[in-house]
Nucleic acid binder design. Structure first.
Length: 192
DNA sequence: ATAACGATCCAG
DNA sequence: TGGATCGTTATG
């Protein structure tokens, strides 16, 4: 038995969502093709008081979607070359999101290899920039409703053996917050 | 109007 | 271990 996560799931506290997403399957269906992967690593970015969150300077044109209701995608561009996929969480006017950092490829690995120009399955989706390239996700994909048909998350009943909680990667401020989650001993966690 | 700076990745 | 590379933001 498997079920699609609905609006209520994304309205939960961001740390709950970030942890609960580990082990769930992310599915992207469009252009007549379907790509999917099991989420193995996430990070939470929560509110205007989180020094690493894009909402730390208040509402801007870029982060506006974070101020909306949870359950929508937020994709942004960094380092002049990488797209980052996030899921907006919590109620409207409560800016927060979960960064999807790594996936275990499931469906459509042939397409992922082509998009990544890489044959090594372990290099397809083991990092936030890599997985966006493998899925063909860019900033134009901001605002997709995760309760719709194009992109959604499914609970297939997979339960991680152990989830590890650490400091977030690649940030300067906010190291004291242990807001990164990943499935222990999964080969597809980034940075290995 | 403009400069500094990233929630990174990959080659060497 | 450092260079690539450019949109967003902050500041003048």
């Amino acid at each position: 038995m498997s079920s699609k996560l609905g609006r209520d799931f994304y309205l939960q506290p961001t740390l709950v969502v970030a942890k609960a997403l580990i082990g769930k399957e992310f599915i992207l269906s469009r252009g007549g093709r379907t790509l999917s992967g099991r989420i193995v690593e996430t990070e939470a970015y929560i509110g205007e008081n989180d020094p690493a969150c894009h909402a730390r300077y208040g509402l801007t044109k870029r982060n506006a979607i974070m101020y909306g209701v949870g359950g929508f995608t937020y994709v942004y561009f960094v380092y002049g070359m990488h797209n980052m996929l996030n899921f907006v969480t919590e109620r409207a006017n409560s800016p927060a999101a979960v960064l999807i950092r790594a996936l275990e490829p499931l469906e459509g690995t042939g397409i992922m290899k082509a998009l990544r120009k890489c044959e090594d399955t372990l290099q397809l989706t083991t990092g936030p920039g890599k997985l966006c390239q493998a899925f063909g996700i860019t900033v134009k994909d901001t605002g997709i409703d995760l309760t719709g048909d194009i992109a959604h998350v499914i609970d297939r009943g997979y339960r991680p053996h152990q989830i590890v909680q650490t400091s977030r990667i690649g940030i300067k401020d906010g190291q004291e917050m242990l807001w990164r989650f990943y499935e222990a001993e999964n080969k597809f966690v980034s940075g290995k």
